[in-house]
């Protein structure tokens, strides 16, 4: 028998595919007796025989059997445990993703609910409103206490603060009226006229302004009240102005102004 390790050489020889190196090596091997020439020839003859052998055609029965087996195999494959496992895993994956989404949604909704508990969305405007009214109240308290300050500058500041209070209540109006009628400083009283005029929607402020007219001694305050009444178109003030006009000591400029004011109001 020919040694396995020379099979490549032999195969190449049998197929007539030897190059010169291989031919040389084969010749050497034959000469040295490592490959039996007889064996080689025998193999050569056998290859020749094999070529001449008929290749048997597959019968139709064989073909049928093949396809039957294939079908059987296919059937076996579909129900195989590996397939099942695979399917299960895909299913799990989908289920996992779904629950993940549900989980996210749940956290989100919980957050929303907690958030809503602490800061109800619908109440935000209300809270801002509340905050603003608190600021307004603080201003009020500050203003009222400042109005009693001995410093005229502080009192002036207080009157100016009242212009920033959006809707004034009775306390503020009363404090301003007290200032208008009693403050020792003309400029503070003057500022109070303006402040009360800007809050004239308050009936107490309006009537307080009218009643103050005859009490004022300062010509500049009298003139400011005339401006205010004109702006408010307050006809009830006419009688009060007439009281002022009846005073002999009335400043001539103011007298002139009051006469014009009365003429415009009537």
């Amino acid at each position: 028998m020919i040694d396995e390790k020379y099979i490549d050489l032999v195969t190449a020889y049998l197929q007539n595919d030897l190059n010169t190196d291989q031919q040389k090596k084969l010749d050497e091997l034959i000469e040295s007796g490592k490959i039996d020439l007889l064996d080689l020839k025998e193999m050569e003859i056998m290859i020749g025989k094999m070529d001449s052998l008929d290749t048997p055609k597959p019968s139709s029965a064989m073909r049928d059997r093949f396809y039957t087996m294939l079908d059987e195999e296919k059937e076996a494959q579909t129900v195989s445990w590996s397939h099942k496992l695979n399917g299960w895993m895909v299913e799990q994956k989908q289920r996992f993703q779904l629950s993940y989404l549900v989980y996210i949604a749940a956290v989100f909704l919980t957050g929303l609910m907690i958030g809503d508990l602490y800061a109800p969305i619908s109440n935000q405007d209300e809270q801002i409103e509340q905050l603003m009214s608190e600021v307004s109240q603080m201003r009020e308290v500050m203003m009222i206490s400042l109005l009693d300050n001995s410093s005229p500058t502080e009192r002036l500041k207080a009157v100016n603060i009242s212009n920033e209070i959006r809707s004034v209540d009775e306390r503020v109006v009363n404090a301003l009226l007290k200032t208008l009628n009693n403050d020792s400083n003309v400029n503070v009283r003057l500022a109070a006229v303006d402040a009360l005029t800007s809050h004239a929607n308050n009936p107490a402020a309006r009537s307080g302004l009218i009643n103050s007219i005859a009490q004022q001694e300062s010509p500049i305050v009298q003139a400011a009240l005339a401006d205010a009444m004109l702006a408010l178109q307050e006809r009830q003030s006419v009688d009060e102005f007439k009281k002022l006009l009846s005073r002999d000591e009335l400043d001539s400029n103011v007298r002139n102004k009051l006469e014009n004011t009365i003429a415009e109001l009537i």
Partner: peptide, 28 residues
């Protein structure tokens, strides 16, 4: 805060209190 009835008001400030309001009024 300065007011007069018949009189000029003249004031020159070389510094002012940044927080305080001021007022100047007169008639003539």
């Amino acid at each position: 805060t300065v007011n007069t009835v018949n009189g000029d008001i003249t004031a020159s400030f070389n510094s002012i209190n940044r927080e305080s309001p001021m007022a100047f009024s007169n008639v003539q």
